[in-house]
């Protein structure tokens, strides 16, 4: 049906009556739902009035079609604009207030947070990553051999008293430190080894303000040819400067069955600058980590030639660091998982 049986005049009249009816209907719609119904009637893609009108374009003389099409589009745009204007008026945003007061609060999404202990761990890991360390992990339930024997703990010795152990059975303990992963790593991989070992460890400690039966530890292990105590000292001093902004560190003799020589590292108390205060218990120093050259018997336990290879290791507790950094007075707060606490650490 391409015969011209509709004049341009008729078509324009049809357009005018369409607009005269559609525009007030849009403006008068009382609700968003009513507006949708009006839209379907006049602008609906499938059965709307405008669709019928567009079909009639084909019935015009070819010469008239350009002008008719132009008029058609102008009407369509005006009606659609009326629709949009009404839609905006009906939207809840518009009802709730004007935008003239930008001090009204922004719409916000929930903000999550990494646990403060994990944040400390992340930062520690970041610094050691720059020094070429990779991450090793291990199980939390260990054999006594991995937890003690391979780490040169003398059997039935007071050194064991430092690790009050939770037992699953005679053959299984909850690891009391991350050090068993040193042995596992040395068994699985050949030097050069530079790994950081984060993880939870467990001790038979009462859950009180300063103790928890489960806590995070992070351990470092370096094994290669020609590794020295000076490497240990220099690397850990670098770490202390980066992490704590420490101006000064010191190494003190200490004892761990799995390192020899052993040392603990302190950083100068940042609160009092070494003159002694409550934070450093009047000592001027804050204890940070234990460290030492890997004991030859640990290397040999893991099948590493202790004549050819030497190494060093250290361990520290990110939980205590997090408490000190954020002024958290009771370790149990870290475990309670109170959302009011956790939300303070959103970044």
């Amino acid at each position: 049906m391409t015969d011209a049986n509709l004049t341009l005049h008729d078509f324009t009249a049809l357009l005018a009556s369409f607009e005269a009816e559609a525009a007030p209907a849009m403006t008068g719609a009382a609700s968003a739902d009513a507006l949708d119904a009006v839209r379907a009637t006049y602008l609906g893609r499938a059965h709307g009035w405008l669709k019928d009108l567009s079909a009639k374009l084909g019935q015009l003389e070819k010469a008239d079609r350009g002008a008719a099409g132009k008029a058609f589009n102008e009407v369509r745009l005006r009606v659609e604009a009326a629709l949009e204007a009404r839609r905006t008026e009906l939207s809840p945003r518009r009802e709730a207030g004007t935008l003239a007061d930008p001090s009204m609060p922004a719409r916000r999404s929930w903000v999550g947070a990494v646990h403060p202990v994990s944040q400390v761990l992340d930062e520690m890991i970041e610094i050691f990553r720059e020094l070429g360390f990779t991450i090793a992990l291990g199980p939390e339930v260990e054999t006594p051999w991995y937890n003690f024997g391979a780490l040169n703990f003398p059997p039935d010795h007071p050194a064991m008293d430092l690790h009050d152990t939770l037992y699953i059975s005679d053959d299984a303990v909850l690891r009391t430190h991350t050090s068993p992963v040193q042995v596992r790593t040395l068994q699985a991989w050949a030097p050069p080894i530079r790994v950081l070992i984060p993880g939870n460890v467990h001790r038979r400690d009462p859950f009180d303000a300063s103790h928890a039966p489960t806590f995070a530890q992070v351990e470092g292990l370096v094994v290669d040819e020609g590794i020295t105590f000076a490497d240990l000292k220099a690397t850990l001093t670098h770490f202390a400067k980066r992490f704590f902004g420490a101006t000064k560190t010191r190494f003190r003799p200490s004892y761990f069955p799995f390192t020899e020589p052993s040392a603990e590292m302190d950083v100068l108390c940042g609160v009092c600058d070494g003159s002694g205060c409550g934070v450093c218990k009047q000592s001027g120093w804050i204890e940070i980590l234990g460290s030492g050259l890997v004991h030859p018997s640990v290397l040999e336990s893991a099948g590493v030639d202790s004549e050819k290879y030497t190494g060093w290791a250290f361990g520290m507790g990110p939980g205590r660091t997090a408490m000190a950094r954020h002024g958290i007075p009771d370790i149990r707060i870290l475990y309670d998982s109170d959302v009011r606490f956790l939300s303070q650490f959103a970044r």
Partner: peptide, 24 residues
């Protein structure tokens, strides 16, 4: 005295151990 030891980081070979997948 530990404090008498030199404070120089020496070069190191890269670790042979890949990151543990559970960490990544």
């Amino acid at each position: 005295g530990y404090d008498r030891l030199p404070d120089v980081i020496t070069g190191s070979r890269p670790s042979s151990v890949p990151d543990h997948p559970m960490h990544v």
